[in-house]
């Protein structure tokens, strides 16, 4: 099966779960985004065909939400909170600086091994425990230089273990 066919099968499976209606668009995009860290062109075309929603509309929805991406991202998307309480801890908080330092990438970039992407987010509801960040859907709080490095290592191990398990 070529990549496109695999995607179509995947989308069909999601349709079985969420239904073949316009309202299934969001949950299907969420699942795709979760599974691949982004929603590819082929994935959007497959969704468009499956739900009979115009492809431009699928694209419009996929670009509207910042948790969705239509461009490839790392397996782990790190989102640094930039809203006021966290930001007040200092824009170049040593913990955040450590993140950039450790991964050797800038904001919006992905590591060359495709493991991490760093993005910004608005308040994630951890205001009294900043600086805070999310890795995929898990929040991490009260970040320090050391905790950032160990969190990254944990994800690296997790990725390695997942790879071995395959």
């Amino acid at each position: 099966m070529d990549a496109q066919q695999t995607l179509r099968t995947e989308v069909e499976q999601l349709v079985r779960v969420h239904g073949r209606t316009r309202t299934a668009l969001m949950p299907i995009l969420q699942d795709l985004n979760r599974a691949h860290s982004y929603i590819s062109e082929d994935a959007m075309l497959a969704v468009s065909d499956a739900l009979n929603v115009p492809r431009a509309e699928v694209y419009g929805v996929a670009t509207f939400y910042s948790y969705f991406s239509v461009k490839p991202r790392g397996t782990y998307v790190i989102r640094i909170c930039r809203t006021i309480s966290c930001a007040k801890q200092g824009e170049y908080h040593p913990a955040i600086a450590a993140l950039f330092d450790e991964l050797e990438i800038g904001m919006g970039e992905t590591t060359s091994d495709g493991m991490f992407t760093i993005e910004q987010t608005n308040c994630i509801g951890m205001c009294d425990q900043g600086p805070a960040m999310m890795v995929n859907e898990i929040p991490h709080i009260k970040l320090t230089e050391a905790s950032v490095r160990s969190i990254l290592n944990e994800y690296r191990h997790a990725a390695l273990a997942a790879k071995k398990a395959q």
């Binding site: 492809r55 431009a56 694209y59 670009t63 509207f64 939400y65 910042s66």
Partner: peptide, 9 residues
């Protein structure tokens, strides 16, 4: 035709 959409937010 739905060639156009609003991208982003």
């Amino acid at each position: 035709v739905y060639a156009l959409t609003t991208e982003g937010r």
